[in-house]
Design a protein around this nucleic acid. Structure first.
Lengths: 190, 190
DNA sequence: GTCTATAGGTGGATAGAC
DNA sequence: GTCTATCCACCTATAGAC
């Protein structure tokens, strides 16, 4: 593995800062200091913070979709897929981070418009994937869903984001795990 | 009703701004402009922004507790109490606002320590109240809870916060209502 | 690509007059 | 209690040398 290109190293730091302190909670100076380059160099790679945010969101969305495709490829059965999906969230929390889009959703009104749209697109992609898994599970008699699957998917995504933000507030990943396991248990057919 | 004291008018504006843009998303200048006073006057009433935040949280917590006591006094039955509880959230969303503490939870790492503790105290108070209502409901055979009532209460509070933040992201209160109704339906004994 | 230097703006906060 | 005036730190962003 070669050393990541400068642009990627910048995004790595920006991503971590955005997931812990929010997009408005870090500055070019923070990234520059950590990478030991100057702010001017940052502006060479990302002319404006709005552009940095847009690219950050784009990369995050892409890697999340890739993770979902990996689950589709390697996991067998709707219940296992949902467990793997929840594990993606837990892994982020274990790094003391929030879901980037859960974080950005809180700051939504202060974000540049392309980012606002990116956040919504991320949630819609999540809901669509979960809804498809729920559909499969119901069809196979593995899962039991109350109401429509798109509504149940939206509920699960929102509940996971909420569980994440509360768990992080208490510095207690166990809170997330307890909540998410209960949510999945509700979905498994008895 | 007399005109609210200046300190209260300041808190009213700060509260709305914090609920829509976050605590780091507004400045003394924003409040000063809207109230048509100077920043120096603001500093007379609230010497520092940290102090303003602390007082804001204190007042918010107090008024929320009062709302819960009002529900206890005027609502009959655990199911009705939960509906009234959820309606408190919906009313905030209808004003295009987030729960103050849901907002602050996202920014938690950037907040002064007294505020961080205040946010956790707010959530704990919410969970305690909900857990007590769930206990009552289960004892009366009105509600059906999976797992312990404190865990179910934590799950409900977190899920409502998540549903709120997602609904606001899409500018769609209906999303919150659909999610919260489904959550309550899960709790009502069949 | 990375630097120095700096512009132009805004952040929270204070001194002191009224 | 409210004002004017000001401080200093920090913000995003740009010009221009290397």
């Amino acid at each position: 593995m070669a050393t990541p290109a400068t642009a990627d190293r910048i995004l790595n730091i920006a991503e971590r800062l955005a997931q812990t302190q929010g997009f408005n909670g870090f500055s070019y100076a923070d990234i520059a200091k950590e990478l030991r380059i100057t702010k001017a160099t940052l502006h060479y790679h990302f002319p404006s913070k709005a552009e940095l945010g847009r690219r950050l969101l784009e990369r995050y969305h892409r890697s999340f979709v890739a993770a979902l495709q990996d689950i589709d490829r390697t996991a067998d059965g709707a219940a296992v897929k949902l467990e793997r999906y929840v594990a993606l969230y837990a892994a982020v929390l274990a790094k003391h981070r929030m879901c980037l889009c859960g974080m950005l959703a809180a700051e939504l009104t202060t974000l540049p418009k392309p980012m606002r749209e990116g956040v919504r697109a991320f949630f819609l992609a999540n809901e669509a994937w979960v809804a498809r898994v729920l559909d499969d599970g119901v069809r196979q008699g593995i899962l039991r869903v109350t109401g429509s699957t798109p509504a149940a998917a939206a509920r699960l995504v929102a509940s996971l984001e909420g569980a994440m933000i509360l768990a992080r507030s208490f510095g207690d990943v166990g809170r997330f795990e307890a909540a998410s396991h209960a949510m999945l248990a509700e979905l498994v057919a008895t």
